[in-house]
């Protein structure tokens, strides 16, 4: 019961901190002092109190975009086990619901972008749906490989692995799945090298350009959803790259938090040392994820 409450506290409170940590890492690399860790939370609270401007071309879909995205990722996040703590809602095949909730979020985000009638936002929406064509099969193939490894059909069993954890004999497919999920994480959360979350106005942007017209509480919801998405996908990835558990609940929560911090730091480092790919290169990057996941499954066929 306590763990379930902590789960929800993590899901609702921690995500913006990850954004804060990434920004801190980036500012260390850039030699700046950097914003405080709580800056993303402050931004969200400030935006929630602001007024908004609605374009005359928009309809209710424009507000539904952030609302559906927020709800979809919250529900998806409640299906994932965090560290060794199982989700209370798991059922066989919940991974399909998980993946398709992200799909629904994408449907409404891109529709809300098209609702503004802006060429920029249409361009971003087009790219978003294009890259999903490669990242979605990569995600499913990764889960298929994990299903074969663990023999489970629900996210709890699939990610926590068989009784006693994944065996070392399965290290090779696990590494491949980890790579694939890592690439999917970078693409889905619009980080470098797929997308650059900092520059809003460039023609090369994907996610940021789709929310140009959102302001006030709507922008706050978009920001919060982006943080949630990072948190949820990181907690999936953590099971593959850090399949350890201690056995004491408090320590396990600390380990989980440390894992999230580790992923944030890695993302921050990647963003500091790498440039964004040219648009034409992104599909190849994502194809890499697809190949890793497919190879992981093939390694498991015998």
């Amino acid at each position: 019961m306590i763990d379930t409450i902590i789960r929800f506290a993590f899901l609702l409170l921690v995500p913006p901190l990850m954004l804060g940590l990434i920004n801190r890492v980036k500012s260390v690399f850039a030699g700046r002092k950097g914003p405080p860790l709580l800056q993303s939370w402050r931004d969200i609270v400030k935006l929630a109190g602001k007024g908004i401007v609605l374009s005359s071309t928009t309809s209710w879909v424009f507000i539904a975009g952030p609302a559906v995205t927020l709800a979809a990722i919250l529900v998806a996040g409640s299906l994932v086990p965090y560290g060794p703590f199982r989700s209370p809602f798991g059922f066989a095949g919940d991974l399909v619901l998980f993946a398709y909730l992200f799909g629904l979020a994408r449907f409404f985000t891109t529709s809300a972008a098209l609702d503004t009638g802006s060429a920029f936002e249409g361009m971003g929406a087009s790219r978003e749906v294009t890259f999903a064509i490669l990242s979605e099969p990569a995600f499913f193939l990764s889960l298929l490989a994990l299903a074969r490894l663990s023999g489970a059909l629900d996210l709890n069993g699939l990610l926590l692995g068989p009784e006693g954890g994944f065996s070392t004999a399965t290290a090779a497919p696990l590494v491949l799945v980890g790579l694939a999920l890592g690439i999917v994480l970078l693409a889905e959360t619009s980080r470098i090298p797929v997308d650059d979350p900092n520059t809003h106005l460039e023609l090369t942007m994907i996610h940021e350009v789709m929310v140009l017209d959102h302001s006030g509480p709507l922008l706050g919801a978009v920001l919060y959803s982006a943080a949630l998405r990072l948190f949820v996908l990181s907690s999936v990835l953590l099971h593959v790259v850090m399949p350890f558990r201690i056995g004491v609940a408090a320590l396990d929560w600390i380990l989980f938090a440390a894992g999230l911090a580790g992923i944030s730091i890695v993302i921050g480092v990647i963003e500091s040392v790498m440039a964004r790919f040219r648009m034409g290169r992104v599909p190849w990057f994502l194809t890499g994820a697809l190949l890793c996941a497919g190879s992981a499954f093939v390694l498991l066929v015998r």
Binding site: K50, I52, V53, L54, S55, S56, T57, D213
Partner: peptide, 9 residues
């Protein structure tokens, strides 16, 4: 707190 009647930015 909505301002309407503007075009898309």
């Amino acid at each position: 707190r909505v301002r309407r009647g503007q075009g898309t930015w």
